[in-house]
């Protein structure tokens, strides 16, 4: 039972990996690819690590640390890359600037 659940998590993570990494080869803007990578590298890897956690529950402290650092580092790296890619004021994509809130 646990095995099936763990394989489901790992395979879900693998599907996320392939789906989110595939757009890297295309010709979209960096930011669009960044959205795909946030699916693949953050959510996909988290699913895989949860799958591993189900297999070896006695190593939970280190795997939970892995989960936390995965989510924080990948998210912060996404923000930093997005910040560095865009210049002040000018964007190569998405000219519409609305006022949401």
């Amino acid at each position: 039972m646990i095995n099936i659940l763990s394989y489901t998590c790992i395979i879900l993570g693998l599907v996320f990996w392939y789906w989110g990494t595939w757009p890297l080869l295309g010709r979209r803007s960096v930011l669009y690819k960044l959205h795909g990578l946030s699916v693949a590298d953050t959510l996909g890897s988290m699913a895989i690590v949860v799958g591993l956690l189900l297999r070896i529950p006695h190593e939970w402290p280190l795997l939970v640390l892995a989960l936390i650092s995965l989510s924080i580092w990948n998210t912060v790296l996404g923000y930093v890359l997005a910040y560095c890619v865009t210049d002040d004021g000018t964007h190569d994509v998405g000219q519409e600037v609305g006022h949401g809130g």
């Binding site: 990494t21 890297l24 960096v30 690819k33 960044l34 990578l37 693949a40 590298d41 890897s45 995965l70 990948n74 790296l77 890359l81 560095c84 890619v85």
Partner: peptide, 12 residues
């Protein structure tokens, strides 16, 4: 930047 993105993906 596309390369940096790829490297980030590789490292994770």
């Amino acid at each position: 930047w596309q390369r940096m993105l790829a490297f980030a993906s590789i490292s994770t």
